[in-house]
Amino acid sequence: MRIINLRRKIILNAFGSVFLIFSFAAVVFFIYKYKENFNIKVQEIKSSTINLKSKTIALQIKIDEALKYKKIWDNIDENKKNTQPIKMDEINKIIKESAQKNNIKSEIIQITVPTPIFGSLARETLIVSSASGTLSFQAYDDISALKFINDFQNKIQGYAVITSVDFTKNKNYKPQDIIEISLGKGQGIINVKISFFWYSYKEKETPENQIKSGN
């Protein structure tokens, strides 16, 4: 067998081996990449599915929550739902009207400027602001005082959480006091001083709201 022929065969086979090894590596690489792309696609679909599932679950939770709050929504006074800004004059008007209705005297209200809060009251569609305030007045009896406070809480926009109340009776009624009260004069015998936090809210600036408001 000729050595030169054998040598040629070995060289050819070696080149063949190199070519095949490269081909094999290329095939392996190509298939690996191909599978990897497929796997990425599968993962994308799976993560998208997971996302949709979690959206569904979140929506389901929302539905349950919405159903739970639907009754509350129906029972909440309209002024509690009001998200329009309220001016101090309007608050004073509410106080005056309620005071007149409940024979309340010397009513004085002081409220600080509301500041937005972002703690547990941070909401998706609303910005909740809080302001602290004090309200002092005189009443002829505790029932009138309570009614006045209740009126104030119901008529004012949002929630007024009373954090402290002081009812102090200055004196007992005398016949002269009753005559003066019937004439619409005289002073109440109960001094009331309440401190409260007033929570009001306004619409959050979302793209939808901006469109609605035309901005």
Partner: peptide
Amino acid sequence: KIDIDRIIDFGRINDALHPSEKRFIESYI
């Protein structure tokens, strides 16, 4: 039509504030 989020927001605010708001009057009554 009212946004479902709005109902939830008001509900949660109500949950957080309503008991405290009425605590004084309830106690007095």
